[in-house]
């Protein structure tokens, strides 16, 4: 999963826009953004945060600085040290696949921050807040919390590659009328592109994605 390999795989699978969302971290997003910029793939920085409720929630931003500010806030709520022999090495690499260092934090853990606060902080930094893989038993919001809290100000929900977007609302009535997308949730190179969403937008920006999720001004999620 080096930055160059990720972008190469995006080109092969015709992806125009991706988000790099590591667990509770965005330290590898910058290198992929730079590599994507060189090769014509738009890369947004983000984090997949594991909340206090052990729900996975995505925070996706337009600018790296916003994502780094989110990361600093998340790190302040994250305890524990990684054990590489148990959880694997948490490498930070540049676009030339050079290892810059290792992240010592226990990124697999849950942060001591509630979902409501995470959504509010994401919005304060002008990011999009999406509940991740809501169809999944592990760390999906519906399984963890029984249902999606009605007052949680999500910008949308994501279903995993296992559930086609066209069937998502029927299969999971808990989604209701919330905007819904799908993505690969790729943890390995081979997973990139196994699911994707088609968004009708004027440009690959956070503002346009927000409009598309709201089905506003001619923008939309094509199902």
């Amino acid at each position: 999963m080096s930055p160059r390999n990720i972008i190469q795989k995006c080109l092969e699978t015709s992806l125009d826009l991706i988000a790099i969302c590591d667990h509770n971290s965005c330290e590898n997003a910058g290198a992929v953004m730079r590599e994507g910029g060189r090769q014509g793939v738009c890369v947004l920085p983000g984090l997949e945060i594991c909340s206090r409720e052990e729900v996975h929630i995505l925070a996706v931003f337009g600018q790296l600085e916003q994502a780094l500010a989110m990361q600093a806030w998340v790190y302040a709520g994250l305890t524990g040290q990684n054990q590489p022999d148990v959880f694997g090495y948490q490498i930070v690499a540049n676009e030339d696949s050079e290892v810059l260092g290792e992240n010592p934090r226990l990124l697999i853990g849950a942060v001591q921050l509630g979902l409501g606060d995470i959504v509010r902080q994401t919005h304060a930094l002008n990011g999009l807040s999406l509940s991740a893989h809501v169809d999944r038993p592990v760390n999906g919001i519906i399984n963890q919390l029984g249902f999606i809290p009605p007052d949680l100000m999500l910008d949308g929900v994501e279903v995993s590659y296992r559930l086609p977007l066209s069937r998502a609302r029927r299969s999971l009535p808990e989604i209701g009328d919330r905007p819904c997308i799908t993505s690969s949730d790729a943890h390995f190179l081979k997973d990139i592109g196994r699911a994707c969403s088609v968004l009708r937008m004027a440009a690959p920006t956070i503002a346009e994605i927000r409009l598309a999720l709201r089905d506003d001004q001619g923008r939309g999620v094509v199902v």
Binding site: E53, G114, L115, L145, G146, F147, P149
Partner: peptide, 10 residues
């Protein structure tokens, strides 16, 4: 150990 608002509804 869950302390989220949803526990009240459940």
């Amino acid at each position: 150990v869950q302390g989220h608002l949803n526990i009240v509804a459940v």
